[in-house]
Design a protein around this nucleic acid. Structure first.
Ligand SMILES: [Mn+2]
Ligand SMILES: [Mn+2]
Ligand SMILES: [Zn+2]
Ligand SMILES: [Zn+2]
Lengths: 146, 146
DNA sequence: TTTGGAATGCGAATCAATTGCATGTGCACA
DNA sequence: TGTGCACATGCAATTGATTCGCATTCCAAA
């Protein structure tokens, strides 16, 4: 068994692949899925394997270095660096843009659930679908059922 | 092209498989995934195909007869009859139980997003993970990060 | 340095979901 | 009450995402 070493924090062992993957995630603008992470990492290390990408995504998740997101109906999930403050997402059904937001209402909701349902919330999966500012003005289908 | 007929509402054509599947979903206690729906339907019609289950799940979804849910980390999604009032879910990480709940805070959140982000919300995907009443009292792991 | 245990690369395997195609069937219209 | 045909079905093959087995390589603690 291997004990924690302080030099490389919780990235341990600090293999070149592991460091590369984490820096790609860190430098990414938006949210990456495994395939896209693999594509970008391959540019810097052509021999990296997709399995290694998946294994490290799981590792980073376990180390709480990254967050996993399930957006809308997309098959694969996305990843991003964990930040100090929690945040949630709006996904436009039209252009696919992902907008991040935060609201104190979510803390209130969690508190309410803890009180009313006697349920200890450890994770909030919240994603709202709809039409963004730019896409909502364009023509919409006639039926506006739910 | 076929014009709508009123006799069978939006289930049309009303094939035996389609009627069977809908009644299995209707009679189900909880939330079903495709495999489980297939299992239950097969008891009443042994020749039904899994592809037909998937095709009809998509059909029912398009007809807004059922709702699709993505619970926690489970690979496959679950389905349930659409109800008049919207509701959301708590999933226990320990025993897997799914608890349904509703809260006016969610309406408030949607309104806030519409106002602040100028975003038209059409669907709220919300699922909270944690520990239910029965599981939270039992011993927990030492580290309580996240 | 040495060395054990963990990480990697590769391909094969899984698992959920979709699709192509030949066949069967519900139902609008005659 | 029949008939036609668009659409539904069954089956098998396919896709797409993720995981796994295994031989090999690589960290990092001592
Ligand atoms: Mn984000
Ligand atoms: Mn429900
Ligand atoms: Zn948009
Ligand atoms: Zn529980």
């Amino acid at each position: 068994m291997r004990i924690n070493c302080m030099c490389t924090a919780n990235i341990q062992p600090a293999t070149s692949q592991r460091k590369l993957l984490l820096s790609v995630i860190r430098e990414a603008k938006g949210h990456l899925d495994a395939k896209e992470l693999y594509r970008r990492a391959s540019k810097r290390n052509a021999s990296i394997s997709l399995a290694t990408v998946y294994r490290n995504l799981r590792f980073f998740k376990e180390q709480a270095l990254i967050d996993e997101r399930h957006f809308g109906h997309t098959r694969s999930c996305c990843y991003e660096m964990k930040r100090s403050e929690e945040h949630y997402h709006l996904v436009c059904r039209d252009c696919g843009h992902v907008i991040e937001f935060e609201s104190p209402l979510i803390h209130k909701l969690v508190a309410e659930i803890r009180r009313k349902n006697n349920f200890d919330v450890t994770r909030v999966e919240l994603c709202l679908e709809g039409y963004c500012h730019d896409c909502k003005k364009e023509e919409k289908p006639l039926s506006k059922v739910t």
